[in-house]
């Protein structure tokens, strides 16, 4: 079990994360927050790339900093900005990382064959990566993260650059992998985690806001999400009174999905909240700010 115990992280006077408490056992954990919320900082602490300013991270009761190599050999990590050597082929790159992961050459070769097939790169396994598309590079990144069959798989924005078909395939793969390991998937794309995460962790104002199953989190706004159709000319006025989640045109009217704490009107239809609704509602200030900027 991986435990984050009262962890805070500061850079000088700037506090990136404050008193984070989390527990991870086998399963998929979706770390969901807008960009800049501190997801990557938390992940870098989980991968020992940076160290907490206070608090500790424990794996099976021992501080991961003290475990060192013993902890990192259980780790698979795909960083957000996955760097690669443009003059290396996927095989050469994976061989190098296999060596760094302390793997036997024969095991690496066998595992490479499996993974390159899995990420559909077996045809370009010996081609230099400088000619690869963003999606292909990302698939190399996924392969390297899984190379040592990690007990803890940490993926920071793993679907960036993947096409819809690859995303679906990747999600299915993670669901399968998560049966006997911890998979932590950091993203700001709700659909990446909605269908596969056992638990969602939402970070806001440098702290963990919610941690729970999707159903539990969605209950936070249960009874507040509605849909209605209104004429376009009333839209601006209506949106001032409610928090709009999504809008679409339907039969000459504007079909709007929204959150309201007011007593519902007869034309409103109560709907079951989904994770995206919670995400948009929780981070409404951040989203408006980023939209404005």
């Amino acid at each position: 079990m991986l435990v984050v115990n009262h962890v805070s992280k500061s850079y000088g006077k700037f506090e990136a994360l404050k008193d984070i408490n989390l527990e991870f056992s086998n399963g998929v954990y979706g770390l969901l927050a807008p960009n800049g919320a501190g997801k990557t900082t938390l992940i870098k602490m989980l991968t020992t790339l940076i160290f907490p300013s206070s608090g500790e991270i424990l794996y099976n009761g021992t501080n991961i900093a003290r475990l060192g190599e013993k902890y990192r050999e259980l780790l698979g990590y795909l960083p957000q900005d996955f760097g690669y050597y443009k003059n290396y082929s996927p095989r050469q790159f994976l061989s190098y990382l296999g060596a760094l992961k302390g793997m036997d050459k024969k095991v690496v070769n066998k595992r490479m064959d499996e993974l390159l097939k899995l990420v559909a790169l077996e045809d370009v396994a010996t081609k230099k990566m400088k000619k690869f598309s963003g999606g292909m590079i990302q698939r190399v990144g996924i392969a390297q993260a899984m190379l040592n069959d990690p007990k803890i798989l940490i993926l920071d924005e793993p679907t960036a650059g993947l096409d819809p078909k690859e995303r679906v395939r990747f999600r299915n793969l993670l669901s399968e992998l998560a049966r006997d390991r911890i998979v932590i998937l950091s993203t700001h794309i709700v659909s990446d985690v909605e269908s596969i995460a056992n638990e969602i962790i939402m970070i806001k104002d440098k702290q963990v806001l919610y941690k729970g199953s999707i159903d539990e989190i969605c209950k936070k706004i249960a009874g507040m999400v509605y849909e209605t159709s209104i004429p376009y000319e009333q839209a601006n006025m209506f949106k001032k009174e409610v928090f709009s989640l999504s809008e679409k045109q339907e039969d000459g009217l504007l079909k709007i999905r929204f959150i309201s704490k007011k007593t519902p009107e007869p034309t409103w239809t109560a709907v079951k909240p989904n994770l995206e609704d919670v995400f948009l509602y929780v981070y409404r200030d951040d989203i408006q700010e980023s939209g404005a900027s």
Partner: peptide, 20 residues
């Protein structure tokens, strides 16, 4: 090399880590 090619995160989070 790793810092120039932005592979430092992948490489230094590996088992070998900073001993590299």
């Amino acid at each position: 090399y790793e810092f120039q090619n932005q592979t430092c995160l992948t490489v230094y989070a590996s088992k070998r880590g900073r001993k590299l």
